[in-house]
Design a protein around this nucleic acid. Structure first.
Lengths: 209, 209
DNA sequence: ATTAAAATGTTGCAATTGCAACAATACAAT
DNA sequence: ATTGTATTGTTGCAATTGCAACATTTTAAT
């Protein structure tokens, strides 16, 4: 995945960010910052620390949707934060630089540095669109088994590995696939009993093909 | 929805496109152009004419996924064209200008015109991400009824209208919702019989709330 | 080490769904 | 107007699923 400051050194990073009329914010650990970042034109760069994007699913459970570290960026649109049941919480003391599209695009000191930055930003958008399309391809399958197999196949194609580590919890995984956790659990057991996969905690090993 | 040449007049449009080291292509009506546009870095601007993006669903039916007119743009990533069962077909004699990210981003004549163009491009990406998130929100609902109601509610919020015109066919609509067409038909009938909606051909009228 | 809390696993059951097979209707071409 | 084709509607049925209720295991806290 492209990082926003890829090929940009620290000195230039701050030079760029300063020029965008951006503001610096500091938050303590475990603070909800959704209200600061919800504006649809906002883009937030994580300078120090990390945040998690969580979502309350229909059962009312707060599930981790994503975890973002320093040098990563997020925005309302990228993570659908306008949706009522999302929240953004700092995982540690965190420093953000917050700006918006207009200020980034209007930046006048056009140079190599800026070009690299804009290119990285496009690539991040591209990656996001790709991953959303990917998820749609998975959840568009009609049965739980086919959703799982589509997920496995995609993982295999991308990582060339038969070992899949479930990030976060099985509940979050089920939410990603838009299915009931216990029904997924049942189907994983079926796949295991039929010899297609092996399950060791949060590692699933593909035994087929 | 943002158009790529919004706030850019025709003269400047061509000036911009020429400067991106872009090539012009002409296609006859009803030509498959997927092979010309499939490269993931490609961006295609429709100068004249129109194209449809189609997708062969699991039943083997080719469904219209989207229809794009002149002054619109598309690209492999934006429409997931790498996926094996997509195709792009011209609906009339069509002229395209095809370029790629690198050439757009590296463009050196930085000026107001270019700024507007880049801003429009970002907005289109933003719109795309929004609409993908929207679709995921809809298809993540667990029952056909809830998918339909979520779609209706979103439509109502966005258009402030109780009349919904189904674009393309009911089959395409079912594909968008990732459900079986006949099961959807049954559920629409239920909603009708229970007095929630009225159906007149491809117009659905919301009677609730 | 003990206890509490959170996460994961299991299972019966009713509701929902996909699928197949077919009927009815709308649309297009001559 | 007639014929053929594509789209939409209907329905029975078996398979799948969500849900609830509960058991077991893992993790975290003291």
């Amino acid at each position: 995945m492209t990082k926003i400051f890829e090929n940009i050194d620290a000195k230039n990073k701050y030079k760029l960010l300063r020029s965008f009329r951006a503001d610096t914010y500091n938050f303590k650990k475990n603070t909800s910052i959704i209200n600061t970042v919800i504006d649809p034109n906002t883009i937030c760069f994580i300078i120090k620390g990390s945040v998690k994007i969580i979502r309350n699913n229909e059962n009312g459970n707060a599930n981790i949707f994503d975890k973002l570290d320093d040098n990563e960026l997020f925005g309302s649109t990228l993570y659908n934060l306008n949706d009522i049941d999302y929240d953004v919480i700092t995982l540690e003391d965190t420093e953000l630089i917050i700006t918006n599209y207009n200020d980034i695009v209007k930046y006048q000191g056009k140079n190599k540095l800026y070009t690299v930055f804009i290119k990285n930003l496009f690539m991040i958008y591209n990656d996001k669109i790709k991953s959303l399309n990917e998820r749609i391809n998975i959840i568009s399958k009609k049965t739980i088994r086919n959703k799982l197999l589509e997920f496995f196949n995609l993982h295999f194609k991308k990582n060339n590995s038969r070992n899949i580590y479930i990030p976060f919890s099985y509940q979050s995984f089920a939410d990603y696939l838009c299915i009931d956790r216990t029904a997924m659990s049942r189907e994983l057991k079926n796949l295991k009993d039929e010899g297609f996969i092996k399950i060791t905690g949060k590692r699933i090993t593909l035994l087929y093909k």
